[in-house]
C-alpha cells in the first residue's frame, strides 16, 4: 500500500434517519480507505446500508457520526452547496436506471454535466464526442436516448459520468437492468476504465459482477463484514474483520 493520502478515508461512519420521530440506524460505524486507482465492489443484501454508504461517499447524503476524509480533507459537514460542488467536480454517477433525459439526443445527454461545471460551449461537443468514443458509441451521437438499447444507454450514462474527468466513478447496480450480454459488456467497459487509471466504486448484489472488481467490501446490517482483495480471493482465503 502506498504511503500517499487515500482518496477516500471513512472513519467509524454512522448514519441515522429520523422518520416521524422514529430513529432508524442504517450504518453502525463503518471504516475503510480506498486508494486512487482502485476498483471496489460494494456488496450486501438489500437493506444492508450499501446504498446509503454510496450516497454518503458520493456526496448525495451526509453522515450522522464519524468522519469522511476525501483526499485528506474532512468533508463530513459540508453544506448543500459545497456537497453539490463536490459532486460536480469530483464524481461521476452511473445508475441502475440509466437516468438519461429521454427526449434529448445522446450527445446532449453527455454534455449536460459540463453545463454546470462551466465548460465553454465551444469545447463541450468535442469533449462529449471523445467520451462517447471511449465507450464505443460514436455512431449513436445524434440518436435520441430512448432509441437506444439498454446496454447502449448504460454506456452513454458511463460516458456522461466520465465527461468531466471525475476523480471517482460510482456505479450503482450498473447491470441491474441489463441482460447478461449487455451486462458483461458494461462490466468489461468498467474494467477497461479501471485499467486506464479510473477509480471505480460499484454497488452490486451480484457476485458475478463483483468478480470484476479487484476488491470487494461486504456490508450487512450496517456493518462492514468483509474487505477482500483480489489476490486474497484467488488464494481462497477470506479476510474477515
Amino acid at each position: 500500500m502506498s504511503s500517499s493520502i487515500p482518496l477516500i478515508d471513512l472513519r467509524d461512519v454512522k448514519k441515522q434517519y429520523i422518520n416521524d420521530g422514529v430513529a432508524t440506524t442504517v450504518l453502525h460505524g463503518v471504516s475503510f480507505a480506498i486508494q486512487e486507482g482502485e476498483f471496489v465492489a460494494l456488496m450486501g443484501p438489500s437493506g444492508s446500508g450499501k446504498s446509503t454508504l454510496m450516497h454518503i461517499l458520493g456526496f448525495l447524503d451526509r453522515l450522522t457520526e464519524g468522519a469522511y476524509f476525501f483526499r485528506g480533507q474532512d468533508v463530513s459537514r459540508l453544506d448543500d452547496n459545497a456537497l453539490t460542488a463536490m459532486r460536480r467536480d469530483q464524481v461521476g454517477f452511473v445508475f441502475q436506471a440509466f437516468h438519461l433525459l429521454p427526449k434529448s439526443s445522446v450527445i446532449d445527454n453527455i454534455m449536460l454535466p459540463m453545463m454546470y461545471v462551466g465548460v465553454p460551449r465551444s469545447e463541450r461537443r468535442k469533449k462529449a464526442e471523445q467520451a462517447l468514443d471511449s465507450v464505443g458509441l460514436s455512431h449513436r451521437t445524434d440518436h435520441l436516448s430512448n432509441q437506444l438499447s439498454g446496454g447502449e444507454r448504460q454506456r452513454v450514462a458511463i460516458a456522461r459520468a466520465l465527461v468531466n474527468n471525475p476523480s471517482l466513478l460510482f456505479a450503482d447496480e450498473p447491470t441491474g437492468n441489463l441482460d447478461s450480454k449487455s451486462g458483461s459488456d458494461v462490466l468489461q467497459l468498467l474494467q477497461n476504465l479501471h485499467t486506464s487509471g479510473h477509480t471505480i466504486i460499484m454497488v452490486t448484489h451480484e457476485s458475478e459482477a463483483a468478480e470484476h472488481a479487484e476488491r470487494i467490501i461486504r456490508i450487512r446490517d450496517g456493518l462492514l463484514v468483509s474487505d477482500a482483495r483480489d489476490h486474497a480471493r484467488r488464494q481462497g482465503s477470506i479476510y474477515n474483520k
Partner: peptide, 16 residues
C-alpha cells in the same frame, strides 16, 4: 422529478 434529481446529482446547485 427524475430529471431534477439527475441534474442535482451531476452538480446543479439549488439556485441553478
Amino acid at each position: 422529478t427524475k430529471e431534477i434529481g439527475l441534474r442535482k446529482a451531476v452538480g446543479a446547485t439549488y439556485s441553478e
